[in-house]
Design a protein around this nucleic acid. Sequence first.
DNA 1: ATAAAGATACCGACTAGTCGGTTTATGAAC
DNA 2: GTTCATAAACCGACTAGTCGGTATCTTTAT
Lengths: 194, 194
Amino acid sequence: MKKATDKKILNSAEQLFWHHGHRASSLDKIANDAGQSKGAVFHYFRNKKDITSQVLQKYAAEQLFEPLDKHFAQTPNTKEALLSWGMEVYQAYAQEGYKGGCLLGNLALELADEDEAVRCEMASIFQTFENQLTSYFKDTDRRGEMVMEPRQFARLLIATLQGITMTTKVHKDKNRAAREFQAFGELIERLIKG
Amino acid sequence: MKKATDKKILNSAEQLFWHHGHRASSLDKIANDAGQSKGAVFHYFRNKKDITSQVLQKYAAEQLFEPLDKHFAQTPNTKEALLSWGMEVYQAYAQEGYKGGCLLGNLALELADEDEAVRCEMASIFQTFENQLTSYFKDTDRRGEMVMEPRQFARLLIATLQGITMTTKVHKDKNRAAREFQAFGELIERLIKG
DNA sequence: ATAAAGATACCGACTAGTCGGTTTATGAAC
DNA sequence: GTTCATAAACCGACTAGTCGGTATCTTTAT
């Protein structure tokens, strides 16, 4: 299978940003990892920011928006969809040995205070994800099954999942990780009725 | 007031790590910021890791353990203590313009996968904080006022607060920040009875 | 069909500057 | 005169980004 050079570079950048951070991932490393030269990198991208932006969009679509939609497409039950989504996140993370975590969260803490353009882009991704989640709660809310206001609950879920991803990354302990994600499940159980 | 050179270096390192991250804070910048030379830095510290470790311990004591203890010393009411603690975190963060966030959280995502020794140190700080929080819930639990198991609730609070700190740092929006911390308060209200 | 012309893809050496860390020099205290 | 505290010069490795050049496609003219 032949892969376009720019896609290869983007994939390498995504993996390196994800697992070693933005600053630690030099363009030399990205080029090398993609089996390309630095010249090729600058042929396809204006600069490192350009790569960062495209990686962010790619990650958001593939790792955040699509998986969430998938789980809500599989069942009309909100609670069930959230729990199976959380379970998938947990299992994927465990398989990686609790390394990497969430690329968006990592870049958020690393770059939000350093680059205003990237900050805006990340804010927009978080906002879109929150809207997506909130929209899934509308029907549930109409049936009177939401304990909290839909948008506030969506924010709480996003924040909590990011926080659990962080603490799990630090502890790298299987039993502990299971308990943390169990707490996430409990949160859902207690804040959605039925 | 005369300040010891090593304290000055440590303070500069803490501020730079906090607001620009570990990798972005070079030893030259730290020395410069402290009004000292690089020679002085290596006179008082073995290397950058040594500084990192000491900054971490200093931050944990001053910014995490002590403030929490303070709020629980002021009132015997668990819910009240948690809410006033959350309010202080929120106000301090707002005053900083939602910059920096939590030094421990920032370094956690930046270094947990890169340096095993630092990872262990951070894990231990998170663990101590969790134990501290859990211990405050013991009486509350004995009175049957806890909806969740104390330790699980402590983990949820830590994760959620870290997550809110992250999203707030990205959005840098006053109204949004107020709503996010309001959700944190709602979480406490709903998971502690009385 | 073929050759010239032009665009696209790619390479790797190079620049100016930064990194963590070392070494050497200096000045003061005792 | 020796020891501690600080400064400053320095090292090799690494950084983002530039640039001159080449190899390979695509288009056009004949």
